[in-house]
Design a protein around this nucleic acid. Sequence first.
DNA 1: TAGAATCGCGAGGCTCTCTCCGCTTGCGCC
DNA 2: GGCGCAAGCGGAGAGAGCCTCGCGATTCTA
Lengths: 192, 192
Amino acid sequence: MGDDHSSARPLRADARRSRERVLQIAQEALAGDGLTISFDEIARRAGVGVGTVYRHFPTEEALFEAVLLGRIERFLADARGLATAEDPGRAFFGWFAKVVDEAAANQALCDMLESGSRTALRPGSTLEDDFAAAIDRLLARAQRVGAVRPGLTGQDVADLLRGCLVAERRARSRRGTVRMADVVCDGMRPSG
Amino acid sequence: MGDDHSSARPLRADARRSRERVLQIAQEALAGDGLTISFDEIARRAGVGVGTVYRHFPTEEALFEAVLLGRIERFLADARGLATAEDPGRAFFGWFAKVVDEAAANQALCDMLESGSRTALRPGSTLEDDFAAAIDRLLARAQRVGAVRPGLTGQDVADLLRGCLVAERRARSRRGTVRMADVVCDGMRPSG
DNA sequence: TAGAATCGCGAGGCTCTCTCCGCTTGCGCC
DNA sequence: GGCGCAAGCGGAGAGAGCCTCGCGATTCTA
């Protein structure tokens, strides 16, 4: 949704330069300040006009999604790497906890993963679907060996992950000691 | 935090009227539209000037907290009512699930309970402390009979509740069938 | 190198938050 | 009842943010 570098002709040289510059500034800014940065400010820091930012990223959401993509993709790659792991249960729960852990440390990533009107990861978005699909593979294997309760879908896990992140973030901000991922992971195990 | 009806002299009659009118409008508006309503719009609907709204509720947060208070208090009352229930484990988990369930059905309540910069329920706020304290009693009894894993605090549970709500809301928006509260509640049980 | 397509830019419209201060209203006292 | 004043009201307007529009500049293509 963000833009159209796929099938259309490649961007003109100056356009590519602008786009990358904006994206880099946005990444830095978002990692530091979370989702509070304004388009005007991004444009100013990137040394371009606001119009240029909007040309490449028509909405806040498009920009945030573009920034988010890079980070999420690492999580997806991890998931793919674990698709043939020896212990499917361990792989699944380890991945879940690791994602929560890394995401909780990144302000912008949290803001974006958490629900709310500003997030790019709405239910139904492509990114969201990819995310759920990546989870599905890990999940299916873990369920097959009885490590995860049946009935849970990739979407369910994605939602739980997000919820867990919210909890984890709050816990950290008050220096809580319980790892929320441990609690939620236990909840995903077969009951009894 | 919201205002000062406690120790100072009572509000003048017209001020009290204005305050209540604004609060009522805000309640209605928030329940319908979530947190998107503007102060200008609230003022217009309430038939007062924007200045008046700001006089009573200096910030968005103060207004939202005032609205939230009423809803939260019912949850707290429920918790108090269950403080002497026969089965502490059942009381604790039942309360948790019920709160998630009711909150998930109320747009504004969700918006406010979920994390994010606009929420009144920041860690450290009075409301947040009351909430955690109410949970503490239910929790302690449930832990004493071994229904809930030790080590978990009221704050932890409050955070988990919020996370669970995020997950539940997303699950509902895509018509998921798993009750997130069930998963999270299982996670709070003693492991093994 | 010239024409066409694309891009850059920032003024400005719109909305939203919040402030400021002159005007109005209710309250207590004579 | 009438008076004085503290308390409250209101809305213009500052400031910030989001986004659009269209002309001039730049790059690509032939």
